[in-house]
């Protein structure tokens, strides 16, 4: 009898315990729904409506826009370019950022804070100043990078950086680097400080330790960084050089793409 009476409040407490995480994440979840999910859903709805230069948005249900996206090579090219730049940027950031974070994590206190500030530096500078900086480094044939490479004898003729994909990937990797370093660093700090010693005591060399023990554990950090990199760059990227040509075609854009660049 008493056993039955005892289980009831226990069950209630268990239920409360199960609901607590939901209650605590609710505010953030609501913000997420309000500013991301609802606008996205509205954009999807909008994509089924018709649009004309003079008639504006017409609330009808058509598949014209989707058909256009699927068949027009203009969009295919644009999407492919977006993904290509995203992948190249992520690769470059990971290849440079992950070792950077690993070295940072092994530094002692004072140097660590100093270099953390250096890494976070780009985030503190306005995007205009940063862009101007890269323009000075890359600009035309007399850019600092080209001058340096030529004086070192690495290249004979200047490499075109400005308005090219190479330049964009380099500059974007620079912008995204702090996110990558911070994410990987956070993952590295969660690592058991003894885990490398444990692997070493079992006979693993330094390369094996990084490849088999450290890398698999910081991969989630890399993935997080990758997603935050692409979050910062949701707009599809038109071809950089022929902006005029893209502009002339922009009249044909569907409401969906034009709304995202607005």
């Amino acid at each position: 009898m008493s056993a039955v009476a005892d289980t009831a409040p226990q069950a209630a407490a268990k239920e409360r315990g199960a609901r607590a995480p939901w209650a605590m994440t609710a505010p953030a979840l609501m913000l997420f729904v309000g500013v991301l999910l609802i606008p996205l859903a509205m954009t999807v709805l909008l994509s089924f409506h018709d649009w004309g230069q003079y008639k504006g948005i017409e609330p009808v249900f058509i598949l014209k826009n989707w058909h256009e996206i699927a068949t027009d090579p203009y969009y295919a090219e644009m999407f492919w370019r977006t993904f290509r730049i995203a992948i190249l940027t992520t690769l470059l950031t990971a290849v440079l950022g992950a070792p950077e974070a690993y070295i940072l994590n092994r530094m002692s206190g004072r140097w660590k804070s100093f270099f953390l500030l250096v890494i976070l530096g780009p985030l503190l500078i306005s995007v205009v100043a940063r862009t101007l900086g890269w323009a000075l480094l890359f600009g035309g044939n007399n850019g600092l990078v080209n001058k340096l490479l030529m004086s070192l004898g690495v290249i004979r003729a200047p490499i075109p950086f400005m308005f090219t994909e190479t330049g964009m990937v380099v500059a974007l990797a620079h912008v995204m680097m702090p996110f990558m370093v911070l994410s990987v660093w956070a993952a590295l700090q969660r690592l058991d400080p003894q885990i490398e010693n444990a692997a070493m005591s079992l006979g693993a060399g330094p390369v094996t330790i990084v490849r088999r023990i450290v890398m698999p554990q910081i991969m989630p950090g890399c993935c997080r960084a990758r997603s935050s990199c692409s979050r910062c760059r949701p707009a599809p990227l038109p071809r950089p050089r022929s902006s005029a040509a893209a502009g002339s075609r922009s009249r044909r854009r569907s409401p969906m793409t034009s709304s995202s660049t607005r």
Partner: peptide, 8 residues
Amino acid sequence: PAKRGLGI
């Protein structure tokens, strides 16, 4: 240390 063959 990797060659000492100790268990830790």
